[in-house]
Design a protein around this nucleic acid. Structure first.
Lengths: 153, 153
DNA sequence: TATTGTTATACTCTATAACTATA
DNA sequence: TATAGTTATAGAGTATAACAATA
């Protein structure tokens, strides 16, 4: 609690080191994002579809919850799940506890696709492969510290 | 050069540490992306518009080059630049060297907007502020090693 | 002929608002 | 009345294909 938590609006200056790190992170983001879209496309999925499928591939989730996790409006999820359902990768199930709720669940084929998708994410092999185990450990700890408490949604 | 550069197609298994780092990077990506979109929206720009504006805010670029950098089809840039031009943030200039080429250039207002956008990227202040200078240096070096040669496009 | 930028088209994602069926 | 999911709509991004101007 050393610094005030209200960001001073008149402090646009950031030290060069931080700027360099931000730029590097920007590069990582662009690269990761690209790879994700590419991996999704290899399975004829859009990025959004792949994200939804990945999200529910472990356990089913109400439409509302998917929207919250993806930070988009619930109405969008309808269409995305529609398309996934049309391809047999996802199905809608009733929620026994609340008849208003529909649970989006991956089918067997959907789970297989999600798994293949996860494993085809080359990001793990290629860029991270350049780091030693000790370096990866350091990177992990730095990222965890950076992300702090709010890693969980 | 310790490992073969042809990725074995039958090696889906990745060690848990690497998986953890990949997941953390995924979180960073989502967070950074979100903040970027949000910062753009504060200036009534979409993410794509903000990226194009940021790209040409330093020096003008041919439409084709913008498409290459953004990894999208040139035809898309036409529309994005149209909208930026309609708002007076960008203008199209002829290229004296090649009359087929149009250079997209930021106007004064466009440059101001791009600058404000850069400075409003809270990512520098918030998450990176949790790290000491020594830690930021370590993070920078790890990211640089990770990204390797292909940082430049 | 090849290249640059554009147009036309179709699809997806996105937010907003109004609707329905439950609670 | 409040909530979950949907529908309808409009705007934006995207890829593809065809086109005009220029090289």
């Amino acid at each position: 609690m050393a610094t005030s938590h209200t960001t001073p609006p008149s402090t646009p200056r950031v030290d060069p080191l931080t700027l360099e790190v931000v730029e590097l992170i920007g590069t990582v983001v662009a690269r990761y994002y690209d790879e994700y879209e590419h991996a999704a496309a290899e399975h004829s999925l859009t990025g959004a579809q792949a994200r939804v499928l990945g999200l529910i591939s472990l356990d089913p989730a109400p439409m509302r919850k998917i929207a919250r996790k993806l930070k988009c409006e619930p109405s969008n999820i309808t269409g995305i799940v529609d398309r996934l359902e049309g391809r047999g990768l996802v199905e809608r199930r009733p929620d026994p506890a609340d008849r208003r709720v529909k649970l989006a669940a991956a089918t067997d084929e959907g789970r297989q696709t999600a798994k293949a998708l996860r494993e085809s994410l080359d990001f793990a092999r290629e860029p991270l492969g350049r780091l030693s185990e000790a370096e990866r450990t350091m990177l992990r700890d730095l990222l965890k510290r950076m992300l702090g408490e709010d890693v969980e949604l």
